[in-house]
Amino acid sequence: MSQDNGPSPWTVLAAGLWRENPIFALVIGLCPTMAVTNTVTNALVMGVATLVVLVGSSTLVSALRKVTPGPVRITIYIIIIATFVSAVDWALAALLPAAHKQLGAFISLIVVNCIILGRAEAFAARNAVWPAVLDALGMSLGFTLAMLMISAPREILGSGTLLGHPLFGPRFEPWVIMVLPPGGFLTMATELAILAWWRQRLAARRAPAEAT
C-alpha cells in the first residue's frame, strides 16, 4: 500500500493484538484491567471508552508532533488525553448512564492509564498519523481482548452469568470470590502462568527444529 520503509499496516495493527499485547506481554495498564473485569459488560464498555480515547489522543499527538516542544511534551500529552477522557466521560454519562455509574471513577482514571501515555510517547510522537491510528487501534483492541479474557471467567464463575444472562441452573452456587478483588488477581495470575507455560512449549518445540 505504501512505499515507505516502515512496517506494513497489518504488522502495526497485529503487534498490539498479541505480540505486544499491553496486558499479557507488556503488563501495563493493570488498574482498570483488574478493577472493571468483574462483568463482561463492564470490560466491554471500558474497552470501547479506552479505544476512543487512545485513537483520538494518538491522532492528535501524532498530528502535533512537529510543533510540540520536547521538554514539555509529556504535559501536552496529558492535557490532550485528559481532554478526550473528559469528553468520553460526559458522553457516557449521557448515553449509557447505567454503565457510567457502574464504572464510576474508572472512566476518569483512563487519564492515568499507562497504555495511553505510553503509546503517545513511544509510537504516536514518532510516526505519521495513519500508522499512529493503526497502532492505537491494535493496542486498544488488544487491551479489550485481554480484559474480555479476564472478565469472562470471573463473571461465569463468580455470578454464573455471561453478559448478564444466567448460564447454569438454579442449583449453581456462585463462586463469589471471583467477582471480588482477590478474584481479579488470581484470574490474572492463572492466565499469566498458562501463557508462560504455552510460550515455553512453543520455544521448546521450535528449538530442536532450528538445531537440525
Binding site: V27, I177, L180, P181, P182, G183, G184, F185, L186, M188, A189, T190, L192, A193, A196, W197, Q200
Partner: peptide, 21 residues
C-alpha cells in the same frame, strides 16, 4: 520456574487481597 516472575506476584497479591478482606 514457570510461575516465577509476574504470575507469582499476582498470586501473592491475590492472597494478600484475600487477607485484607
Amino acid at each position: 520456574k514457570l510461575l516465577r516472575g509476574v504470575a507469582l506476584n499476582f498470586f501473592v497479591a491475590g492472597v494478600l487481597s484475600l487477607a485484607f478482606m
